[in-house]
Simulated assay, not measured.
Amino acid sequence: MAIAVLAVAMFMAVTTEFSVVGLLPVLARDFDISLARAGWFVTAFAVAAAVLGPLLTMAASRYAPRRVLVVAVLVFALGNAVAALTRSGTVVLAVRIVQGGLLPVLASIAIVSAARLAGHSREGWASARVNQGVVATAVLGVPLTAMVAERLGWPASFGGLAMLGLVAAGLIGTLFPRLAGDPPASSRAAVSLLARPRFLAQLALAGVLFTAMFAAYTYIAPLLSLVGTLDGVAVGWMLMLFGFAGVIGNAIAGRVARSDPVRVSAIGSGALALVMTLLPSAGGHRLALVVLVIVWGAAHTAAFVFCQVGAMVAGRDAPAFAMALNISVCNLGIALGALAGGAAADRFGTVAAGYAGAALAVVAVLVAGAIIIVRPQAALSGRELPSPD
């Protein structure tokens, strides 16, 4: 039950982050800005997570996880309420920056706490369980907020997320067990991670992979609309299909991620490269479009678990800080991906965002391949961390 409560909190927080993806056309219209400028609502959140996340997590990890989680969730709820009530794009952007800074705190402490409750060697299972909140974001959160915005306006979407945040905070305060925070000594272990080649290589892989993922995913709504000639409601259903495919991807990832996170990340990157390359040409074939969206959703969601488990394995001495750095690097990738996809779309058309994502996914495959090749040599030279098994 405690891990399920964390999944609810993650659903609220990650839906807050990614609901904007489905709302970009509406936000661009209402604030009278270009699609690329509206992409800054995604970018600002991600940059804040990348810059502020590790420091805030290191400070917060000394306190009891339940207290930190409740405070973080309440701040998310308050921010969503403000976004629902304002009509200023600048205020919405400021809210996104605050929420972005707190996302790594919430997510890293939630995932690490779940792993502590699950026990050693079950990190993949625990991460996948908490990640069900991320999956639910793709299945329900993003498509429902898009549909609500289409019918009632985007402020109603943020209002609903504010109420869900209050519910999540209450559930954590009531049902989540008391756990001790990390001892002060863990700060030294946290800083030492930055000198470990294996951990830094894992972060590099996560950053490139997430840049690839979000070069295309940030613009999935206009991309599907253009390629498939779909209206807003149809795009919502396609986003829901994407999310249901993510359920499958999350289940598979929870089982295989612990075996070799780098190798499975390479496979997932290859699948993403293939899908993003083929998608623009699938518009005239609705069945092909459906199949590609399913594969895309499964690989996209699995990548979250692959990177989470990879960070926990490589940074076992300071798992909360390792997870925060992973989330921060992933969010930096989200920001760079949004910018790269937006730049490609502005210059060459919306479909170019898909091609940009494909090219970056190929780079992620190459990075993973390099890690796999070098890894045995590092192990023999003593520079590699010992296996956690």
Score class of each variant (00 low, 15 high):
M1I: 11
V5A: 01
A7L: 01
V20S: 07
D30W: 01
I33K: 01
S34W: 02
F45M: 07
F45Q: 03
A48K: 04
L55W: 07
A59D: 03
A60D: 00
Y63Q: 09
A64S: 14
A64K: 14
R66A: 02
R67P: 04
V71C: 10
G79E: 14
V82T: 07
G89K: 05
I97S: 00
L103H: 14
A107G: 15
A107M: 15
S108A: 15
L117V: 04
G133W: 11
A136R: 11
T137V: 03
V142S: 00
T145W: 03
A146R: 07
A149W: 10
R151P: 09
L152E: 08
A156G: 07
G159F: 02
L166Q: 03
G170Q: 06
I172F: 09
T174R: 14
L175H: 08
F176P: 01
R178E: 13
A180I: 09
D182F: 10
D182N: 15
R188T: 15
A190V: 01
S192Y: 07
R198E: 15
Q202C: 10
L209A: 13
L209W: 10
F210D: 05
Y219D: 03
V227H: 06
F242K: 00
V247C: 11
G249C: 05
N250Y: 07
G254I: 05
L274H: 04
L274R: 07
V275Y: 13
L278T: 04
P280N: 02
S281D: 15
A282N: 12
H285P: 08
H285Y: 13
A288V: 14
A299W: 07
A299I: 11
A303D: 10
C307P: 08
R316S: 13
A324S: 07
N326P: 10
V329H: 07
V329D: 13
N331S: 00
A338K: 06
G341Q: 03
F348W: 14
Y355N: 11
I372N: 11
S381K: 10
L385G: 15
P386E: 15
